[in-house]
Design a binder for these strands. Structure first.
Length: 277
DNA sequence: GTCTATGTTTGCGG
DNA sequence: TCCGCAAACATAGA
């Protein structure tokens, strides 16, 4: 569930604690598969002693820039979370990697479903280079979006979920953007009119900005949900118009919202606002 | 207790 | 190239 606004919320929260500038004094890995590309022992050895220089984001990846020319890339997948805790507090059974810092605090990766991945690399472009543009970046203009769509004939929802097409959107914000733009998720990309492309471009930036303002979307109260550092919930769930609102009235026209599956993903639409020609 | 769905990504086969 | 499907796992909710 962490999509761009949730990851950015986490990055912002990490930048408000005493983390950047600290030296990593040790690392412990409790679930080896969380570490991609190298054995956990090598990971721990290489990262220990590095100083954290910056925490940023690219797409849905958290990017930790370290000394020694290294970067730690973290993808939260479905249920990844980060806890910033004083060393010595009890480890929860879902905390799979613990980075210890020289101020006696730990950055702990908590991941109930264990799909999240950490990559320690000197060549981050090998992972990040494939990503499409940032949807709130300067380069993502309407003209650019039109060019990106030109000549491709793909179902629009899976296209928007494709991180090499555009980086950072997931199921929630795609459903919301398509509703806002009045576009059915099964529409084919090269049948969109200029007006629809413009509406979609604007809708993408609106739903993401709203998500950021609200510090992310936290649905329900489960373990695997989005929580920022210190367990803070996002409040964007209240701002959702269609996502997980099957059977309730469309905020625009009061028609009952329907759930369908598109590209194996649950999708939520207003059949009147988002007609399929 | 049992069964189904789940917000992400990758890799396979057609 | 594109699509559908399965898998990586654990939990919530019916």
């Amino acid at each position: 569930m962490p999509e761009m606004p949730e990851v950015q919320t986490l990055v912002d929260a990490l930048n408000r604690v005493d983390l950047v500038g600290r030296r990593i004094s040790g690392a412990a890995v409790y679930w080896p598969k969380t570490i991609a590309g190298m054995p956990p022992a090598v990971f721990s050895e290489r990262i220990t002693g590095c100083v954290l220089q910056a925490v940023t984001r690219r797409g849905k990846y958290l990017v930790f820039r370290l000394t020694r020319g290294l970067q730690l890339l973290l993808h939260l997948r479905m249920t990844g979370r980060l806890n910033w805790e004083r060393r010595g507090s009890a480890r929860s059974r879902h905390e799979h990697v613990i980075l210890q810092f020289d101020n006696d605090f730990d950055l702990r990766f908590h991941d109930t479903r264990k799909f999240g991945r950490m990559t320690l690399t000197a060549d981050p472009a090998a992972v990040l280079g494939k990503l499409g543009p940032e949807p709130l970046g300067e380069r993502f203009t309407l003209r650019h979006f039109q060019r990106m769509l030109a000549g491709r004939s793909r179902v629009v929802k899976p296209l928007l979920l494709d991180q090499t097409f555009i980086a950072g959107l997931g199921n929630i914000y795609v459903d919301e953007a398509l509703w806002q733009a009045g576009i059915h998720p099964r529409r084919i990309s090269d049948t969109l009119s200029d007006r629809e492309i413009a509406a979609l471009h604007q809708a993408i930036s609106r739903v993401l900005q709203k998500g950021l303002e609200n510090l992310g979307t936290t649905l329900g109260g489960g373990e695997g949900n989005f929580y920022s550092v210190a367990g803070r919930r996002g409040r964007n769930a209240d701002a959702l118009n269609v996502f997980r609102r099957t059977g309730r009235p469309c905020p625009r026209c009061k028609t009952t919202i329907e759930r369908l599956v598109v590209a194996q993903r649950a999708s939520h639409v207003c059949p009147v606002c988002q007609p399929l020609p």
